[in-house]
Amino acid sequence: MSTPAASATLAASLSTEDANIVARASVWSKLARHWGVRIGGAAMLLLTLIALAAPLLGTVDPTLFDPGSRDLLPGAQGEITTLEGESIKHEFMMGSDSFGRDIYSRVIYGTRVSLIVGLACALVSVFLGVLAGLSAGYLRWLDMPLMRVMDGIMAIPGILIAIALVALWKASLLSVIVAIAIPEIPRVTRLVRSLVLSIREEPYVEAAVSLGTSTFKIMFGHILPNTAAPLIVQGTYICASAILTEAILSFLGVGLPTDFPTWGNIMAEGRVQFQQFPHNVFFPGIFLAVTVLAVNVLGDGLRDVLDPKMAKKV
């Protein structure tokens, strides 16, 4: 452990390039020491592994059903018929639903959908938000109209936009991702725009302008790299909220088609017989809550380390 003062003297004695390396290394070691980053990151790693290794974790095809194995309690032994028509013995660790599908397999495969949707929504909304924010912040003539449209989108509760878009487009993985990402764009845009407005006054941008660097290069080469830290933090929060929104859409029956094993879909099917079989709702619910919690804890940790000014505010 080195004190800030010690590392400052150390950095001062080194060349600029070395100092950059020191600064970068200290961010990584700060990240590695932050308990939120550790716990949230470890949980996300575990969930990613679960998603990737889903077929190896004692699961069966999540869409397989066996009328003989309907409504089993967790831990029950039963049978399930494969696509080849062969009946295999299977332990229903989390019970089965009213079609005789294995809840455990559906929950494990549901991890895939949630993680893909969360990650993709974060990437899509950050990408589009960065484009819009850079344009609004750097091209003054575009600022007013673009930001007014963003104000308009922000005035509509996000979940309503997502619901309406999915209803119009017919639900597929792509349409769900885009529909959830769109209402998140204005917040990224505002963030990037405000960063650009302050960064563009920095001496190094002024220097680039006076050297005749093209606007495109200034926007993407000089300004964008300096918005990375707050964007990573914002992207993490968007990922958490997208996972929640996807589950809500599925749960309400307006999201991905019901044969898709998503946590929201499993809960939507389970709610019908919630009084007799509450575990059909609770198992996917626990996975959902833990996943969102992990992403949020990770986001808070990243914010504390990468964006200390923001961390102090909330």
Partner: peptide, 29 residues
């Protein structure tokens, strides 16, 4: 507050229904 932001409204709803309405019978489902 981090948990409050993370727990989905409908999961919380079912937990409350299960405890307060089904187990304790205090309030309508």
């Amino acid at each position: 507050s981090v948990m409050g932001f993370s727990i989905p409204v409908f999961v919380l709803a079912y937990i409350l229904i299960w405890i307060v309405s089904l187990k304790l019978g205090w309030l309508p489902v």
